[in-house]
Amino acid sequence: MGGYGEVQMIDENGVRADGRGPGDIRPITIETGVVPVADGSCRMTWGTNEAIVAVYGPMEAHPRKIQRQDRAVLDVAYNMAPFSTTDRMRPGFNRRSREVSKVTQDALESVVLLELYPRSKIRISIEIVSAEAGTRCVGLTAASVALADAGIPMTDLVVSVASGKINDVVVCDLNKEEDNYGEADLPMGIMPNSGELVFLQMDGDLSQDEFKQAWKYNMDAAQEIHKLMVEALNGGDSQ
């Protein structure tokens, strides 16, 4: 977290620079079937973030050493396209995207009914074509929609959303400036039907009370986003 309150991003009435209130999320659209050659896919825009996710499989897992006799394995790759950021993102290996891929995989393996497909692999490609802030949340949420679009059985969808703190005020769904100059960031991956978590990260500085507020904002936002996901999966775009 960066500037520690040097940039004023929220006024005394709780109105943020982009006009949102503290608990409001950015506009979201969700569309399925956007990669026609894939078994399932999803395009999600969230503010000026845009993720495209394709799911292939279940298919043969090779090399053989990655196979599991009793379940399927997920192969999750999160990647940012070179033109997704203000300064061009060099293609290729990068520690950040490896970590995001891993935590996203851990989250999705918690909801996919892997034991139904022994010895097979399900490939999930998350491509961020436009990045603002919170791309890991967009990627994970869109991936769960793409898995559902592919007809892969899951115990629940995953809604991922982050709350944080700007100028000592807890707010939901940080935008780019808030993420750069804010004081904390708490992304969570929530199963909307049970309220359980499959993904959790945090960095920054939050008091116990602030932490509880951020947690609540995420839980509330998850319900709102879940509706849009279900709408998109029931046919048609969501707005």
């Binding site: 894939a38 495209i52 292939y56 790759a77 070179p82 490939r123 491509e127």
Partner: peptide, 18 residues
């Protein structure tokens, strides 16, 4: 000018170096 075809685009495309 560079082109990238990543695994998102089809089941026969693999990750790794170009």
């Amino acid at each position: 000018c560079s082109a990238e075809v990543r695994p998102v685009a089809g089941r026969n495309w693999e990750s790794g170096p170009p």
